[in-house]
Write a protein that binds this DNA or RNA. Structure first.
Length: 314
DNA sequence: GTCCAGGACCTAG
DNA sequence: CTAGGTCATGGA
């Protein structure tokens, strides 16, 4: 490996990995901020800017600032998970074998609950490309600047001057990956109009309400970790705009409840086509089937079906 | 122009 | 329980 190919990248680490498809994992509709450019993935995890790439046996991370402890990255990417122990729990049937073979190395991330919840509140009846656009706008306008690996042209001036009536819109082309995801408190102080200006349409009041519930302490996302999957699901669904599907996404992608099984149009299509090709099954029927058929890591199986259907089958 | 998107919610049968 | 309308926006 050549030494840092990026001017300004001051910290690099290498992690041995097996059965890890970084591209499939970062681009499979779990997270919405990763961008592939110049042969690597650029992203922000919390307040860390990071670039990721991989070779046959290793995953290589670079950050602009020194990192003493890489736990945040290893946790986010779930580097210590033995994928085979997960795959072994899948049902041994033809559709599942097809999905696993087609998506070797696909993983589930372990994201921040708020970013995940907010992103999926914005996801309803939106294509993934559009979700990415909305999230990018939201972060550009209301997130905190982070030290980036790419040229940070900010002359270190008045980021603090933007009060809520003086909402500082990006002066020109601020790079979408130069800001962290805005906190609940930050969004709670905005107006619905400011959120609608991020192209989120009817989802704006839902996001605003969720941010305010959390900022007020009426809903504690950290506390949900101590609850059962079903209990946490109920809590999440008390929010307007959060139904079963979005709650399941947060349970699966942020809290690691592997039993959660989000059913969107793609997964419904996959179940219908792969498991009930003859007669049409109601959505209730499909959900009941999924609850028993895919085992304790059903959510992981769901991600394989989702990605398989979206990338390999029309 | 038409259809559809990692939906939720409300109403009517 | 199921079917249909509504919400907003932009790709395909």
């Amino acid at each position: 490996m050549s030494p840092s190919q990026i001017a300004g990248a001051t910290c690099q680490a290498t992690f041995p990995v097996r059965d890890y498809d970084l591209a499939a994992t970062l681009d499979s509709g779990q997270a919405f901020r990763w961008e592939f450019q110049d042969d690597r993935w650029h992203g922000i995890i919390g307040h860390h800017a990071v670039e990721l790439r991989q070779n046959e046996s290793c995953l290589i991370a670079e950050t602009p600032e020194p990192v003493a402890d890489w736990h945040w990255l290893k946790h986010y990417l779930q580097l210590d998970l033995n994928l085979n122990s997960v795959l072994a729990t899948f049902p041994d049937d033809e559709p599942m074998r097809g999905a696993v073979n087609a998506c070797r190395g696909l993983r589930l991330l372990r994201q921040d609950p708020w970013e995940c919840l907010a992103s999926f509140i914005l996801s309803s009846t939106k294509q993934i490309v559009q979700i990415r656009q909305i999230v990018a706008l939201l972060c550009e306008r209301f997130g905190e600047p982070v030290v980036g690996t790419r040229s940070t042209a900010s002359p270190s001036s008045p980021e603090k001057s933007g009060t809520r009536w003086n909402a500082s819109l990006p002066t020109s082309e601020a790079h979408p990956l130069s800001h962290s995801f805005p906190t609940p408190e930050k969004i709670a102080a905005l107006t619905e109009a400011e959120l609608r200006a991020c192209k989120m349409g009817f989802r704006a009041p839902n996001l605003l309400n969720a941010a305010r519930q959390i900022a007020k302490g009426k809903l504690d996302l950290e506390r949900l970790r101590q609850l059962s999957c079903a209990e946490a699901r109920e809590e999440l669904m008390t929010l307007r705009g959060v139904g079963g599907k979005i709650a399941d996404c947060v349970l699966l992608f942020a809290y690691g409840f592997d039993g959660a099984f989000p059913v969107d149009v793609w997964v419904e299509r996959a179940l219908q086509r792969l498991y009930f090709p003859r007669r049409r099954a109601s959505e209730k029927r499909l959900r009941r089937f999924a609850a028993t058929h895919f085992g304790p890591r059903a959510g992981y199986a769901q991600q394989y079906l989702f990605h398989y259907m979206r990338t390999k089958m029309k």
